[in-house]
Design a protein around this nucleic acid. Structure first.
Length: 468
RNA sequence: GCCCGCUUAGCUCAGCGGUUAGAGCAUCUGGCUGUUAACCAGAGGGUCGCAGGUUCGAAUCCUGCAGCGGGCGCCA
């Protein structure tokens, strides 16, 4: 590089925000494409700070065509110093007339897998280390990062305390869901007792340990002192689910509020999601426009409708009646007490309501033990939020705070009370009504980005049989 | 876990019993050119996912396996 001094580094985003005519600048990024003519070459440079590219003009009288053609291919990384010229009559508002450049890293065009167009999301999933070089994934991960911030902002501004619940948990203090076991025992020779049981007292914690499937139980304990808390972290499920909506490692947000009943919690859930949609619309206009053009033609309409319309709230019993009156023949028959199947939920959301639906007061036998039993003796104060295109985004409930009712339900389900001592303690000492819900980050991102597979909204996905 | 579909050039795909397997883009070569998914011409590039089988003949039909995708279940 002959001329680096006097060329301050600016990102492409900074140049778009404040273009200064005839300014000497250096900018750095990756080559999206190159076009060569007799006297100049054009390079489209991107750097991840914006979806827009910067056109670099390389005059052959300053930089030889031979060098350009040998070094600059799609994917190569460069630092370019030059002078910014405004070009209001051209397709781009300005361009950088290069004085010189440094080649940081070449990209062999014979082997570099990315081209300037037309890659399937399936193909890009196979090269998750490189897919972030595409505008699609830059848009998605930019939104993911921004939404994560918006989630913290939402709760922090409302007095919720961000708490860290354990990733490693003891064996049976979780609800349903298959667990990943964590051990330091040698798998090639697991220590056993004579009767064939594993000698867990020799394992790291002296007993079995697993990756968490939810921070809820610990979240409840913390809410019993802090009032309103939320967790935001990774969660693990060892279910071999082969669907576009499931991951083995995913991120979940779980608020838990002392003194909240079911209605207050549903209000919070709806307001929370609406807030995220509005945040996305106001902070990611460029990204959403790109994703709409490329993937989901109705994306902005869908997002805007969330802003304006309330969610439809139906009790489980009402939902069953709607389904029975629909005249539809469903694969799974509809009767009070059945669990709602995907086809039922899809009918309610996409045909009946045509907007997000909240279903509440489910039969107790299809829901978890900790959900608060209603006066009718049949239902519990649980709710799900169902979204178009995505399905269930939130599941939550008012928790059973009455010690006797909780114990009775647990005994009914043959649960081991001993391993829930700390959980039960919160009902023995100063128990209060409280509620919470869990929101799957990746599922919300499907709705926000127009993607259809959760593997495309997390940088490196982990699913059964696949570690990208 | 069950069901369905796909797998042909670096990428996206066509070909679905019959000569040496095709296109667009990408790559390379040449031409043209302040270009905008630049353009024009030419070239290279494929044991048609793998293993069997049927047939005079298989990318094409059958079986098994694998990978990927989708539907269902479980859920967030």
């Amino acid at each position: 590089m002959s001329q680096t001094e006097g060329y301050p580094y600016k990102t492409i985003s900074e140049l778009y925000n404040h273009p200064i005519a005839e300014e000497k600048v250096m900018t750095k990024g990756w080559v999206r494409t190159r076009r060569t003519t007799r006297t100049v070459s054009f390079v489209e440079l991107v750097d991840g700070t914006t979806l827009r590219s910067l056109q670099i003009v390389l005059p052959h009288e300053k930089i030889s065509q031979e060098r350009i053609e040998a070094e600059i291919h799609t994917g190569a990384s460069l630092a370019v110093s030059g002078i910014l010229m405004l070009t209001p009559t051209r397709a781009q508002p300005f361009e950088l007339i290069a004085e010189d450049y440094i080649l940081y890293g070449p990209a062999d065009p014979q082997s570099y897998p990315l081209q300037k167009k037309n890659h399937s999301l399936e193909f890009l999933r196979e090269i998750s280390h490189l897919r972030v070089r595409t505008r699609t994934f830059q848009a998605i991960f930019r939104i993911r990062g921004g939404i994560s911030f918006a989630i913290h902002k939402y709760f922090q501004e409302r007095g919720f305390v961000y708490v860290h619940t354990p990733i490693l948990t003891p064996s049976d203090c979780e609800g349903a869901g298959q667990l990943f076991q964590v051990t330091t025992l040698p798998l090639y020779r697991v220590p056993m007792h004579p009767d064939g049981r594993v000698a867990y007292e020799k394992d790291f914690f002296g007993k079995p340990a697993y990756l968490t499937v939810s921070g809820q139980l610990e979240g409840e304990l913390l809410a019993m002192g802090l009032g309103k808390i939320y967790t935001f972290g990774p969660t693990f499920r060892a279910e071999p689910s082969h669907t576009p909506r499931h991951l083995a490692e995913f991120w979940m947000i779980e608020p838990e509020m002392a003194f909240y009943d079911l209605d207050m919690t549903i209000d919070l859930a709806e307001d929370f999601i609406r807030h995220l949609v509005i945040y996305s619309l106001t902070h990611f206009e460029e990204e959403l426009a790109f994703l709409q053009e490329r993937y989901e033609k109705n994306l902005l309409n869908e997002l805007n409708s969330i802003k304006e319309e309330n969610f439809l709230r139906l009790s489980y019993t009402e939902a069953i009646e709607v389904l029975q009156r629909s005249g539809r023949s469903f694969q799974y028959p509809v009767e009070w007490g059945c669990d709602l199947q995907a086809e039922h939920e899809r009918y309610l959301v996409e045909e009946y309501a045509r907007r997000p639906v909240v279903i509440y007061n489910y039969p107790k036998h299809i829901k978890a033990f900790y959900m608060r039993q209603n006066e009718d003796g049949k239902t519990v104060a649980a709710f799900d939020v169902l979204f178009p295109r995505v399905g269930e985004v939130i599941g939550g409930s008012q928790r059973e705070e009455r010690y006797d009712k909780l114990i009775a339900r647990m005994q009914e389900l043959n649960m081991d009370l001993f391993s829930y001592q700390s959980y039960l303690d919160t009902r023995r000492y100063g128990s209060v009504p409280h509620s919470g819900f869990g929101l799957g980050l990746e599922r919300v991102l499907l709705f926000l980005t127009g993607m259809t597979n959760v593997r495309d909204v997390i940088p490196f996905f982990r699913a059964a049989g696949q570690m990208a």
